[in-house]
Design a binder for these strands. Structure first.
Lengths: 198, 198
DNA sequence: ACAGATATTAGAATCTGTTCTAGTTTGCGA
DNA sequence: TCGCAAACTAGAACAGATTCTAATATCTGT
């Protein structure tokens, strides 16, 4: 209640703290993209980031918080990719499918990282903006640049449901139970119904 | 390659081994229904089940395998509940909603257990019949007692998607981000579209 | 520049899942 | 019934996340 640690994902006081945080997240991402979560050991992350273990824990109170931060960066990448090259398809559903499959391909490129991130996110006790950000993204591309706030409750429900389906399919893929094509088919089927006339 | 351990969830040789396995699963469930996964410590489970730690690990090679076993029991309960009192609603979608919300209420009764189970299931490397069993259940109640094998690919995709939405909603609830009513609304919305004319 | 608060560090300590060891018990075919 | 292979037991050992400690370094306001 008295101390003011650099808060996992929020404001940081000094420039050097900002740098430190960045180094930590980068080190974590690098390790995870090799051997997945197991390779991303807290001691190792601290070492690679040139920081004491205690400091790492001051920035990220648990390994999960660190993973969440890494995921944040990944979503940033996806968002900027979509900004750079927005989906051009003509229906809301197909634009949404475009975005989701683009994200899927991105994650497939680093399976270890993807596995670590998705699983950890799902496990997180932490409040993760993951689902909401994905839902917002879907609304934006499928319904006239709608934001989460502007959307009707039903629109949010529908976009959120599609995001849920995607996450689960991703998990199945990581378990080796889905191929890219199967995911695409399922996402298309679900999107066609969930986003019809949205 | 040479030893033949009692295989986590399969055949068991003797009666006493069957008993032992049962005691273990019961002890695990009891502990989990109190303090969740954390309370379900392997040492404690072993102790409560009156079994050596090594033996516990012979039956369940990892904590996850043990959790999967506990979940199996829970799904059995749901299935028999549905057999006893099948959903009576008139549309496929509302029958599906009935089943899912019944399952939701069941899990809400033991939140700690539910949390442990759902999370672990999602994390499991193991091949868990969870999604498939849920999907099969949904097909059965919504489309004329269809089985997973008889259903068309599209039917399986749609029922599977609904199951995905449900799982994610359950997770959100366990994170304290959904109320029962919100879940019900979302499931209804999704089911109406995904199962229309199935 | 000084004082007190905050941040960082190295490293030990703790906790829980998992593995290993050595010895004992049990089940079962000959 | 005898003897072996498999199962079981108690407990030590190991691994990685998390916590704790005592000392040092850095900041901030004055």
């Amino acid at each position: 209640m008295e101390s003011h640690p650099p808060a996992g994902g929020h404001s940081v006081r000094t420039r050097s703290q900002h740098q430190r945080r960045k180094r930590i997240v980068q080190a974590a991402a690098a390790l995870a993209s090799r051997g997945g979560v197991e390779a991303m050991q807290m001691r190792t992350v601290a070492e690679r980031a040139g920081v004491a273990l205690g400091t790492l824990y001051r920035y990220f109170p648990s390994k999960m918080d660190l993973v969440v931060a890494v995921v944040g960066e990944e979503i940033d990448l996806l968002e900027s990719s979509i900004e750079r090259r927005p989906p051009g398809a003509s229906t809301p559903a197909s634009r949404a499918v475009d975005v989701l499959m683009r994200a899927t391909r991105g994650l497939m490129r680093e399976p270890e990282l993807a596995d670590a991130l998705i699983r950890s996110l799902i496990m997180a006790e932490v409040q993760t903006p993951f689902g909401d950000r994905m839902t917002g993204l879907l609304l934006r591309v499928s319904a006239e640049g709608l934001t989460l706030e502007q959307a009707s409750e039903e629109q949010r429900d529908l976009a959120g449901s599609l995001a849920s389906v995607w996450v689960q399919e991703l998990l199945e893929m990581l378990r080796g139970r889905r191929t890219y094509d199967q995911i695409q088919r399922r996402i298309e089927t679900a999107a066609a119904r969930l986003l019809a006339g949205i």
